[in-house]
Computed example of a mutant assay.
Amino acid sequence: MIHHISIAVDNPVKVAQVMAEIWKGAYFPFPPHPGSYIACADDTNGTAIEFYPAKTELVPGEVAVQFARGSSASQFTPFHAAISVPISQEQIKEIGKREGWKVLFCDRGPFDVIEFWVENKLMLELLPPAMAQKYLDFAQIDKFKQFFELEVPVAA
């Protein structure tokens, strides 16, 4: 289970506010890195996303991770996350429209997602309750192998 992730965005406080709204959770400044914010879901899993200012890099330190500022950042990234949310598809659409962010319903074959494009450049696949259950029903090793017609042995 993934408990939290971190993402660099243009407007950390705004993105944290929106994510907290979607989760029906809360957001706070993230003191380890000034200018960053963390959005927390109202769940028992510690689900959260840390939003750092664009161009923030995590680099290895002597004792722990260090924050650095890179010289450039691509507008797009291959990173994405599928996230269960407690609100409806319609509510997600309304929030996206208000923010001017692209929102798309997508049929992924064995499950559906809502592509929620944070700042129109970072994709989060949002899963309202019914979509989340369909995803969980599919997301099993044997079903992945069958769907993608894989014969790869599973590592123990």
Results as ranks from 00 to 15, higher is better:
Gln91Gly: 00
Asp142Pro: 00
Pro129Cys: 13
Glu21Asp: 09
Phe105Gly: 02
Ser36Trp: 03
Gly61Pro: 02
Ala26Val: 07
Leu127Tyr: 05
Asp10Gln: 14
Pro60Cys: 06
Phe138Gly: 02
His3Tyr: 13
Ala73Glu: 10
Phe105Ile: 06
Gly109Thr: 09
Val59Ser: 07
Phe30Pro: 00
Pro31Phe: 10
Asn45Ser: 11
Met123Val: 12
Gln89Phe: 08
Ile83Trp: 04
Gln75Ser: 06
Val85Trp: 02
Lys93Arg: 15
Phe116His: 02
Gln91Tyr: 01
Pro153Ala: 14
Glu125Ile: 03
Ile87Tyr: 06
Leu150Ala: 10
Lys14Glu: 13
Asp107Leu: 08
Phe30Ala: 10
Lys24Ile: 02
Gly109Asn: 11
Arg69Thr: 13
Arg69Met: 07
Ile141Val: 15
Met123Cys: 14
Glu94Ser: 10
Asp137Glu: 14
Asp10Trp: 02
Lys93Met: 07
Phe67Thr: 01
Lys24Tyr: 02
Met131Lys: 11
Ala130Glu: 15
Asn120Cys: 04
Asp107Gln: 11
Glu125Met: 07
Glu57Ile: 06
Lys102Arg: 14
Val13Ala: 15
Ala64Tyr: 10
Glu62Thr: 10
Phe30Lys: 09
Pro129Lys: 13
Pro53Glu: 10
Val63Ile: 09
Glu119Val: 03
Ala41Gln: 06
Glu119His: 08
Lys97Phe: 05
Val154Arg: 06
Ile141Ala: 11
Val65Ala: 13
Asp142Gln: 13
Asn120Ile: 03
Val15Thr: 15
Thr56Tyr: 04
Ala68Phe: 02
Gly70Thr: 02
Pro34Cys: 12
Glu90Trp: 00
Leu127Thr: 02
Val85Gly: 01
Lys121Glu: 06
Leu136Thr: 00
Pro32Thr: 10
Leu127Ile: 05
Ser6Lys: 07
Ala156Thr: 06
Ser71Trp: 05
Val9Asn: 04
Glu99Met: 15
Asp137Gln: 12
Lys145Met: 08
Trp101Gly: 01
Ala64Asp: 12
Pro29Lys: 13
Phe79Tyr: 11
Ile38Ser: 03
Arg98Phe: 04
Trp23Thr: 03
Ser72Glu: 14
Tyr135Met: 13
Cys40Glu: 09
Ile2Asp: 09
Pro12Val: 09
Glu115Ser: 09
Asp43Gly: 08
Asn11Pro: 00
Asp42Gly: 01
Phe147Leu: 05
Leu58Met: 15
Pro12Met: 13
Ala73Val: 08
Thr47Cys: 05
Val13Ser: 14
Phe144Ala: 04
Leu124Asn: 01
Met19Cys: 11
Pro86Ala: 11
Gly100Gln: 10
Lys55Gln: 10
Lys55Val: 01
Ala16Tyr: 05
Val65Glu: 08
Lys24Gly: 13
Met1Leu: 11
Gln140Tyr: 03
Glu50Trp: 01
Gly96Ala: 10
Met131Phe: 14
Asn45Glu: 15
Gln133Pro: 00
Ile5Glu: 12
Val85Arg: 02
Phe116Asn: 00
Leu136Pro: 00
Phe67Ile: 01
Ala155Asn: 09
Val152His: 10
Phe147Asn: 08
Ala132Pro: 00
Pro129Ile: 12
Asp142Trp: 08
Cys40His: 07
Arg69Asn: 05
Met123Arg: 12
Gln89Asn: 07
Phe144Asn: 00
Ser84Cys: 06
